[in-house]
């Protein structure tokens, strides 16, 4: 992995819609409720050993961890517009979001 974070604060990202749980034993720190969801990078938090390897005592290369912000309402189809949830997500779970209509992220201070 490269050392420089791939995503800058403010970048719109999509969490991979991936379910490794269905393929076999694993340890995942990405909650179900944000998989496939679009959010906004708040900031990189540093690089940490990949817990998916650590949990099985495999060599665990460091991966960049981000604080990513999501709007609550699209996730749960309830709640008050403007309320948010901020989650720590590792870089290998994030992909750039194609500039699609209606895909605007939430503005966030740097």
């Amino acid at each position: 992995m490269s050392d420089a974070p791939r995503f800058a604060p403010g970048a719109t990202v999509r969490v991979k819609d991936d379910w490794p749980e269905r393929r076999g034993p694993c340890h995942i720190r990405t909650p179900h409720y944000i998989r496939g969801r679009t959010g906004t990078v708040v900031r990189p938090l540093g690089a940490f050993a990949n817990p998916e390897d650590l949990a099985f005592a495999r060599p665990a290369p460091k991966r960049t961890l981000y604080h990513v912000l999501f709007e609550q309402e699209p996730i749960w189809h309830e709640g008050r517009p403007g309320d948010t949830v901020m989650v720590e997500v590792f870089e290998h779970w994030l992909e750039p979001h194609p500039a699609a209509p209606g895909a605007a992220g939430i503005p966030e201070e740097a």
Binding site: V87, E88, F90
Partner: peptide, 15 residues
């Protein structure tokens, strides 16, 4: 009040 954003912080990883 509705004017306050509620921001839930899910502590999922190393912090």
């Amino acid at each position: 009040p509705d004017s306050v954003e509620v921001r839930v912080v899910d502590s999922t990883a190393d912090y």
